[in-house]
């Protein structure tokens, strides 16, 4: 198991970054949890009590096979099945950019949870800027889709997200910016590929 976890950590550095922000034994809701590997990782490393929310049938099955709790539901319709303030953390990992109702989901995260954690691909990364400046929609490691075949509808940069938080009563507690395994501190909106934010209600 330890070996499996370390390889998982290496292949998904974002998991370790998220885990570093989560208290052991806390209660976690993972929105758009996919096959449940993040929750499984948090359960195994931190002993969290977790639930995932997923819409896709194959992912629901994968979650059951991975032994994590999962509730099939459409995030776009909100989190009405979850009581207010019932989670320590509500995570939205690499899903924000594919959500239609951005404001609603952030508000719902902060209703159901004490803290929210989001991760998203930074559209301001220099490679994306370069591709746009050369006249094309960017296709990259964190944005692997062609413009005509992408689930992403609300891409943003670090600056955009921070402005959004400021305008919507969201207080950012912590930010981390990564490029692969490397933490980016210099000009993060230019060099960062993946953004992590931990936030709460203002």
């Amino acid at each position: 198991m330890a070996k499996l976890l370390s390889s998982l950590t290496l292949s998904r550095p974002d998991f370790a970054t998220i885990a570093a922000w989560i208290r052991p034994e806390s209660k976690v809701l993972d929105l758009g949890c996919g096959d449940g590997t993040l929750l499984q990782y948090l359960q195994d490393t931190l002993g969290v009590h977790g639930y995932g929310v997923e819409i896709d049938d194959a992912n629901i099955l994968a979650c059951l096979n991975n032994g994590v709790n999962v509730v099939q539901s459409d995030l776009e319709s909100g989190l009405s099945g979850f009581e207010s303030d019932s989670f320590d953390y509500v995570i939205l990992s690499q899903t924000l950019q594919a959500m239609r109702h951005t404001e609603k989901i952030i508000q719902e995260m902060l209703r159901a949870g004490k803290e929210g954690i989001v991760t998203f691909p930074n559209f301001g990364h220099w490679k994306n800027r370069l591709q746009v400046s050369l006249g094309h929609m960017p296709v990259s490691q964190t944005l692997p889709y062609e413009w005509f075949d992408t689930p992403n509808v609300h891409l943003c940069t670090l600056s955009d997200f921070e402005q959004f938080c400021h305008q919507h009563g969201v207080h950012i507690l912590e930010r981390r910016v990564m490029s692969g395994n490397r933490r980016i501190t210099l000009a993060p909106n230019f060099f960062g590929m993946l953004a992590f934010y931990r936030f709460t209600r203002r």
Binding site: K27, Y51, C63, N69, V70, V71, Q72, G81, E83, S86
Partner: peptide, 15 residues
């Protein structure tokens, strides 16, 4: 499912 979640019981739900 809501009642189970409210009691922090382990639950999975599929439609």
């Amino acid at each position: 499912v809501k009642a189970l979640l409210d009691n922090e019981l382990n639950v999975s739900y599929a439609e």
